[in-house]
Design a protein around this nucleic acid. Structure first.
Lengths: 365, 365
DNA sequence: GTGAAAGCGCTAACAT
DNA sequence: ATGTTAGCGCTTTCAC
C-alpha cells in the first residue's frame, strides 16, 4: 500500500438530530401545526407559519427523509442495472454510450423527484434487496435476462428494451436497430460501397441480434458478400483486433472490403489508425462508419461518421414513461420506439462526388 | 418526435404487498416470532423457523426496506457528486477517470452494504434534501466548494479530497499531485526532454493547482522555459486545440517543445494525431505523456505513456474510510494520501537509448 | 386556526 | 420458546 495515513480526526459528530417534535416544543405548538407550516399545507395564520419556519431554520431542523418515505409508501428510488457485462460488472460506465445513458437517466429522474442508484451489471436479488426501489431500469438486457426475472419476481416494475415486451409489469423503450442499419448501409451503398464489412461484438443483446440479421438481409438483397468480424469481448483491444481481422481478408486482392461498419464500442480514432496501418486510405479506399457516442470522432482527420443511438433521448423517454407509470397516470403506452441518427462526416464520403450532406447532425463539442 | 407509441399495457399491478403481519396471521404466530425467524435472531425452534421461512417464501413476502431503515436509524445510502463541471452537470461520466471512480465507488460501497445515488455535478440542497443520505462523496471539489458547504451545513459527513482537510465532519482521500508531476517530469527529463510543454485545463481543482505549481518549480529548477497551454473547457475539442496551441509556438525553430505532458482528459489517440498533423514524429521529435485512464492509449502506434491517478484505489480507500467512520469505528485517520502511477510506453521513450522500462505498469485490456 | 391520536412496517425490550 | 408492547419520525384525518 502506497497510502500514508495522516492526522486523526474528531470523533463523528453525534449531536442528536433535531426532530419535528423538537421544533414543536420550542415554538409551543403541536407537531401537526409545525408540519403544516413547514409543508405549506393546512390552514394556518401567516404569522404562525412564519414563526415556525424561522424556528426550524434557526434550530437547523431537517425532516427525516426515511420517515417521510415510510409515510408516503414509496421511496422515490430507482435502481439502474445493465444486463450485459455480467462478468465485468462496472465497465459499462467506460462506454460513452452507457455513460451518457446513465447520466441522462439520473438527470431526468431527478427532475421528476426520483433518485437513481447504481447497481452492478448482472446483479441479482441480494444486491438490492435492502433498497426500497420503486422501479428498476435494466439497460440492454440479454435474452431471457436473469436480472429482469428477479426484479419482476420481486414485483417491482421493470423498464427495459423491447425484449421484455408483453410481460406484465414490464415496460420498454428501444431504438429501431433494423432501421438504423438500413440507414447506415444505405448511406454506404449510396457512396459506392459494394463490399461493406461489419464488425460487431459477440452479444446476446436484442440490438446486436437485429443488427446482424439486418446486415445479412442487406447483403442478400444487394448481392454483397457477408464480411463479418466479431469481437470476442468488449473494450478497445478486442474490437481493434476485430477491425484488423476485417481488414485482412483471407482471399487476395479484390476481396478486400471497401467500407467498414463498426457496431461495437471502440474509440473511433483507433479504427482510423488501424485502417491506415493496414494500408487503407480513408475515405478513398475505405469508407468508415462507427456506431459510437464518442466525441473523439469529431476531432480526427478525417472526422468519423457515426451512428448515434441517442442515449439521452432513450433515457428521457424511458424515464418519463417510468414516472408516468409510477404516478399511476393510466393509459400510458407500454413501449416507445426511437430511431437512431446517422451523423455523416468525411470518413464515409467518397471524395470527388457531389453531396448535399443529407443527414449531417449538428456538431458537438 | 420520432418516437412511435405502441400497444397499451396493463394497469400497474396493484396487489397489496405482503407484510410481516400477513405472514404472522397466516402462520398463526406473532410478528416478533416471524421477524426473528426471518432474520435469524432470537431463540426459536428450528421447526418454527423453517415453517415461517416456507410460508414467507410461498406468500412472496418481501420486507419493506423503508420501514427497516426507519427502525435502524440509517438508510445506508451515499450521495455522490462531482464538485467541478457545475455548468455541465452530467458530463463527468464521459471522462474515463470519473467513470472508473464512480464505478469503483459504487462497487466498494455495495460490498459494504451501502448504495450510491448519482447526483449532478454542483448540485445543491434541493436536489438531495429528500434523500436519506448517510454521507456524501464530493469528488474533485473546487476551492471553497459550495457543494461541500451545503452538505456540511446539513450535518452530513463529507468525503472529499485534501482541500477539506481539518474541517469537522469532513474526511479526505487524495492523490499526491506534486509527486505525480515529479515522476512524470523526471521521466521526461531522463529521456532527454529539455523543453516539456504542459497542457492543462482552466480549473479551480486542488489537483490542477498543485500540478501547475509543481511544473513551474520543475522548470525553475531545470532552467527550462514555462510552456503552458490551457484548455478553456473540458472535452476533446478544447483540449485538442490546447495541444495544438502548445505545438505551435509563437517563436521560430528551436523554440518548439520537445515533450508534451497533457494533464487534461483527452483521447490519447487524438493527441498523437494532432502531433503528427503538426509535423512531429512521436517519440522521435516529441515525447508524449497523457494523464489519462483511457485504455485507447494502449492500442495506438506507438502506445501512449499515461499517468494514472488510480481511480479504483482512490475510490476504495475513500469508501472504506467512509464505512469505518459511519460504523463508528473510532481511531480512523481523517485522510489518506495515494500516489499516482506512471505507465511508461513507447510514446515517451527516446529511440536508441537503453531502457529498463523502470515503472512500466501491467498491460490492461 | 390548532391539537390529539392513529398509523406507515418493522425490530427489540421486556414480559410470560 | 413465543407474545405484548413501544416506538423509529413523520403526515393526516378528525375533533375541537
Amino acid at each position: 500500500m502506497t497510502a500514508s495515513s495522516r492526522h486523526f480526526g474528531p470523533p463523528p459528530q453525534s449531536a442528536p438530530r433535531v426532530r419535528l417534535v423538537d421544533v414543536a416544543r420550542e415554538t409551543g405548538l403541536s407537531k401537526t401545526t409545525v408540519s403544516a407550516a413547514l409543508n405549506g399545507t393546512g390552514r394556518l395564520s401567516p404569522a404562525v407559519r412564519a414563526k415556525v419556519q424561522e424556528a426550524a431554520r434557526r434550530m437547523g431542523y431537517r425532516p427525516n427523509a426515511t420517515a417521510r418515505q415510510l409515510r408516503a409508501g414509496r421511496a422515490r428510488l430507482i435502481g439502474y442495472v445493465i444486463g450485459e457485462f455480467a462478468d465485468t460488472p462496472w465497465t459499462f460506465l467506460e462506454s460513452p454510450y452507457f455513460a451518457r445513458l446513465t447520466g441522462a437517466t439520473a438527470a431526468t429522474a431527478l427532475r421528476h423527484g426520483y433518485a437513481v442508484v447504481l447497481l452492478p451489471a448482472g446483479s441479482l436479488q441480494g444486491e438490492w434487496a435492502e433498497l426500497p426501489l420503486d422501479a428498476v431500469v435494466v439497460a440492454d438486457p440479454v435474452a431471457d435476462d436473469r436480472v429482469v426475472e428477479d426484479v419482476l419476481a420481486a414485483r417491482i416494475p421493470v423498464f427495459s428494451d423491447r425484449s421484455v415486451e408483453g410481460r406484465p409489469g414490464a415496460y420498454w423503450v428501444d431504438v429501431d436497430a433494423a432501421a438504423a442499419m438500413r440507414t447506415a448501409l444505405g448511406h454506404l451503398g449510396a457512396e459506392g460501397a459494394r463490399r461493406p464489412a461489419l464488425v460487431l461484438p459477440t452479444s446476446a443483446t436484442r440490438f446486436h441480434t437485429e443488427v446482424l440479421a439486418e446486415y445479412r438481409a442487406w447483403c442478400a438483397e444487394h448481392g454483397a458478400p457477408e464480411l463479418i468480424s466479431s469481437a470476442e469481448a468488449a473494450g478497445n483491444g478486442p474490437t481493434v483486433r476485430a477491425v484488423e481481422a476485417a481488414l485482412t481478408p483471407a482471399a487476395g486482392p479484390g476481396k478486400a472490403p471497401d467500407a467498414l461498419l463498426v457496431v461495437a464500442e471502440v474509440s473511433p480514432p483507433l479504427v482510423l489508425e488501424a485502417a491506415r496501418r493496414h494500408g487503407y486510405a480513408v475515405p478513398d479506399d475505405l469508407l468508415v462508419v462507427c456506431m459510437s457516442e464518442d466525441t473523439a470522432a469529431l476531432h480526427t482527420e478525417p472526422p468519423v461518421t457515426t451512428l448515434s443511438l441517442r442515449p439521452e433521448a432513450i433515457a428521457e423517454a424511458g424515464t418519463e414513461l417510468l414516472v408516468s407509470v409510477l404516478e399511476e397516470e393510466r393509459g400510458e403506452p407500454a413501449g416507445v420506439l426511437l430511431s437512431a441518427r446517422l451523423d455523416v462526416r468525411a470518413s464515409s464520403v467518397r471524395p470527388g462526388r457531389d453531396h448535399a450532406s443529407p443527414q449531417a447532425g449538428p456538431a458537438r463539442t
